[in-house]
Write a protein that binds this DNA or RNA. Structure first.
Lengths: 341, 341
DNA sequence: ATCCCTTTTGACACCGGTTTCCTTTTTCGT
DNA sequence: ACGAAAAAGGAAACCGGTGTCAAAAGGGAT
């Protein structure tokens, strides 16, 4: 017959049910203006035919689509993937889908590329992961193009409806508190790269905490890193080779902390006996190196879910949250320092 | 005016250019049947108005869309992300977009979920990552639904047009060759989980290579793992605590190799002096632990690109490739064993 | 200049939904 | 039982593209 081996359309449903397509449309969209009998009859036909509305046709008629975009340029694969999982938690039972788009932060054409992408795909909204989430021009572009957006970040970069943020600064403070409680006084810092908001927040948090405890931070107790493993090796090397070396190092992410561990090992400095290390991110590597790293973890999956809900169901209670406290994850890379100081 | 602040449509272009929309459509689709003058005039108008075709409308009219799906349930985030990058390499300049869909391999409803996803989104094709790429029912589902698909795997699971595969078996052989060349005779194996094709291939490759070299594999030289870090710790523990312990261990992935390193450290067995370890995957952790792991890496990004091209540009030369040789990455976790054996 | 063939262009229906607006049916008060 | 208001359902247009097919324009050959 006409509708035998093709996927059924709304017309097929209408014909079989003996109603107009508009009535079927009402059923699909849960319109209240429909008699219970009619609704049930049509629902039966829908189930029978295995009808699923065509999202492209819906998108065209509604002048909006059901695609969320994920923009990222992330050094940390696990973060991206966890976030994706969170987004899917939010949209799995809806008709939305998630489109991913890795971007090149270093390309001068980045904004043009993204503009073209948004124009072409006409996304319902985009989710932006750090570090490019910190780019205000990008947010402005989204607004200009009428594209919804939510930025993930380590600070409140924007209005609550456009942000899911951790509280990096406070969390670094509590990490430093923990080191101080453990008896450390000479604490070094490996900073993240210039221009990264998270790096800034973490460094500020560190300085603030040290000040709070009345501890001095010598310039030679601060080293610059790039968030990459190798930079951690180098930066920790500087710290460890300086005279009056620190008994603990706070690293602005786990990769660099792993690098610091590496540098310590090269120098036969035992962690945690002779040196305590704290990382940030609670990435998988933190648990898989020896000693397992004490670090600060954020609820990325939850943040992904909330971010998606902010776009697709802003009224939902879970969509109201903009702040997501991180947590200190205590493992084995911190110990009380030798008594000599 | 009519078209002032809304995004322009094909009608706007047609009106401004003074031609019919069909003619504009021809220009967009690079039809040859069009006079050069007309084409240039229309292209100018398109550029002037900043017109971009609406992909939803195109999808509706063409009865196909421009969405590729990525199905995965992957323990290894970096693999997924690298593959995504590869896919984007292939589609970045096209109108295609990539939709991701993490799935739950352990759910009994997995196939139904995927069916619903495919029905709902009507994807042009899907890319399937291991381990679920090994599920033949899933491939059958794709065929049944007329959805293109390409499976990534560690063996030729399907026809060339539906697969991008590494040659795990051969690569494990060459890893074993390398250990034997380095003087090892007692080599242990940590297997991946039952039911994973890659685990099977790697184990087979191992046994084949040992046979080739005339080396015996005692049952107690084989331990079962799950591809997870913890299982590596346990499995390596068994191997190392057995009498007549191996001087080298081949681990079926890097996570377990990191676990094995862990187990060695707990027992004060020095790697690589007293024990050599080889992993598989060349995941980031391999380079970030100490000692850096000798491992087998596969060109995942290239595979992602080829997989995408198989769907969107099957005639492209790069889309013809189905086999992607992996490579032994020599780092520091393998050494000549102490002479005693 | 005419005719025929090829190239270029346009009119109109259609893809599968939604919206607007109008008609029919039902419900209910009196 | 009657009329009015409310509820339910339908016809036709529309969203922004593409396919079909016929018409118009161009180009030689006669």
């Amino acid at each position: 017959m006409a509708s035998s081996n093709k996927t059924p359309t709304i017309n097929d449903v209408a014909r079989v049910a003996g109603v107009s397509k508009k009535t079927v449309s009402r059923v699909i969209n849960r319109s209240a203006l429909i008699k219970k009998d009619t609704r049930e009859k049509i629902e039966a036909v829908i189930a029978d035919l295995g009808y699923v509305p065509n999202p492209q046709a819906r998108a065209l008629a509604l002048r909006r689509n059901f695609l969320l975009g994920l923009l990222h340029d992330n050094p940390n694969a696990q973060t991206v993937l966890n976030f994706q999982e969170g987004v899917l938690d939010a949209i799995r039972t809806t008709e939305f889908a998630l489109v991913v788009r890795p971007v090149d932060r270093h390309s001068p054409k980045m904004l043009d590329d993204i503009r073209h992408f948004l124009e072409q795909q006409r996304l319902y909204g985009v989710l932006i992961l750090p570090p490019i989430s910190e780019n205000d021009e990008l947010a402005a572009l989204c607004r200009e193009m009428g594209c919804g957006y939510v930025r993930m970040g380590s600070a409140m970069l924007d209005d609550e409806e456009h942000v899911v943020a951790s509280n990096d600064r406070e969390m670094v403070e509590s990490a430093v508190d923990y080191l101080v409680e453990s008896g450390h006084r000479k604490i070094g810092l490996i900073k993240g790269p210039e221009g990264f908001r998270s790096a800034y927040e973490r460094a500020e948090g560190f300085m603030g905490a040290m000040l709070k405890h009345g501890l001095e931070v010598a310039p030679r107790a601060i080293a610059q890193g790039t968030y990459r493993f190798d930079s951690g090796v180098v930066a920790a090397g500087e710290l460890l080779d300086s005279k009056d070396r620190p008994t603990a190092i706070f690293c602005s992410n786990d990769e660099m902390a792993a690098g610091a561990l590496h540098a310590a090992r090269q120098r036969d400095i035992h962690v945690p006996r002779d040196l305590s290390i704290i990382g940030f991110d609670d990435s998988p590597i933190a648990a898989h190196i020896w000693p397992p790293l004490t670090t600060v973890g954020w609820p990325i999956r939850e943040m992904g879910k909330a971010a998606a809900l902010k776009l697709v169901a802003p009224a939902d209670e879970a969509a109201q949250r903009a702040r997501f406290p991180a947590q200190l994850v205590k493992r084995l890379s911190v110990a009380r320092p030798a008594v000599e100081n």
